[in-house]
Amino acid sequence: MTNVLDGNAVGDRIREELRGCIDTLDGEGVTPGLATVLMSEDPASETYVSMKQRACEDLGIESIHREIDPDAPAEELFETVESLNDDPEVHGILVQMPVPDHVDKRTVLRSIDPEKDVDGFHPENVGRLVAGDARFKPCTPHGIQKLLEAADVDTEGKEAVVVGRSDIVGKPMANLLIQKAPGGNATTTVCHSRTDDLGAKTREADIVVAAAGYPELVDGSMIAEGATVIDVGVNRVDADNEKGYELVGDVEFESAKERAEVITPVPGGVGPMTITMLLYNTVKAAGIQADVPVDLP
């Protein structure tokens, strides 16, 4: 019987364990603080920020929010980030992407203090991840590691294929899988939109992480019997229902489920873990900045 991983359940367990860390910090007079910065009128971005704020409040993390007019000069965003960098009550900073076209995304990422970069995208933190000395692991790949751990999926010596090469998921996921560390030691192949005969690669894999951003790109015929399939994709496709659309992953779930031993659904799989690991990184950042040891889950 296929094990369909419940990201909400795994995330809830980790959040409960984080409460002990927050209590430890509270005993030292420290309340973890996460600042979100929104420079967009995109409804999806507004929803994501609201979800993160609610998650913080539920766990006892101080939520600080800054909104900037999308038509404002780029300098207004950078000045906001600088003020948050200087604020000792703020331990983590997240600038919600995308930002307007007149704002350079890479400059935004570089402007965040690396010790407050709880997304893990600052070049310094990327370099530390690649070097095997991560300060903050990017939230989605780290969440996937936690899901694999919860399902007792051992990555050591396994063949892993990551479909997608984004800076947010594909590249850091591949780096974590090859690390000489728990949750790593896998022989890892990175595939993408220009990979010739993608199915030939994925059928050789014990673990497939689909993060290409293409609806149902990977189907059951591309999965080895007994494989572990992690679906990162969240794609809106037309549907004959009240909303007029439905959310599907990068994996065609029903056919892949017939062959996989472990699989994540969409929604309810990887998604809840991303926000959970953002909270994890914020608590870790607070411990680092306050010099208070915390026993992270």
Results as ranks from 00 to 15, higher is better:
Pro98Lys: 05
Met97Val: 03
Ala210Asn: 06
Val283Thr: 11
Gln53Pro: 00
Gly287Glu: 13
His102Phe: 11
Ser111Gln: 04
Val95Met: 03
Met173Cys: 01
Thr47Lys: 14
Lys105His: 08
Val234Trp: 00
Gly226His: 06
Arg194Asn: 12
Glu246Met: 07
Asp219Lys: 03
Leu77Gly: 05
Glu67Trp: 04
Gly268His: 07
His122Ala: 06
Glu62Asp: 15
Ala150Thr: 04
His65Cys: 09
Ala134Lys: 08
Arg203Lys: 15
Pro32Trp: 10
Leu5Thr: 03
Ala134Ile: 04
Leu217Ile: 13
Asp231Leu: 08
Ala131Lys: 10
Ala210His: 09
Pro293Met: 10
Pro182Arg: 06
Leu38Asp: 00
Lys116His: 13
Gly287His: 14
Leu278Val: 09
Gly60Thr: 10
Thr36Met: 02
Thr31Lys: 11
Ala134Leu: 05
Leu5Trp: 01
Gly143Thr: 03
Ala151Ile: 06
Val130Gly: 09
Leu296Thr: 13
Val232Gly: 03
Val118Leu: 08
Pro297Val: 14
Ala186Tyr: 05
Leu217Asp: 10
Val108Trp: 12
Phe136His: 06
Thr155Leu: 10
Glu252His: 13
Gln145Ile: 01
Thr264Val: 03
Glu67Val: 08
Tyr48Phe: 14
Gln289Asn: 12
Ile168Val: 15
Met222His: 07
Thr155Ala: 11
Leu25Trp: 01
Glu41Asp: 15
Arg110Glu: 15
Pro297Phe: 15
Pro138Arg: 12
Gly183Lys: 03
Gly184Asp: 04
Leu279Pro: 13
Met39Leu: 02
Asp58His: 09
Asp71Cys: 02
Leu34Asn: 09
Ser221Lys: 02
Asn175Val: 14
Arg19Glu: 03
Glu82Val: 00
Glu254Asp: 15
Glu79Ile: 02
Pro32Lys: 13
Pro215Asp: 06
Met97Asn: 09
Arg194Lys: 14
Glu57Gly: 10
Asn185Trp: 02
Asn281Tyr: 08
Ala160Val: 01
Val108Cys: 07
Lys243Glu: 12
Lys116Phe: 06
Val229Pro: 10
Thr274Ser: 13
Thr188Glu: 08
Gly60Ile: 11
Val237Thr: 07
Glu225Gly: 03
Lys243Pro: 02
Ile168Asp: 01
Ile275Arg: 04
Asn125Thr: 00
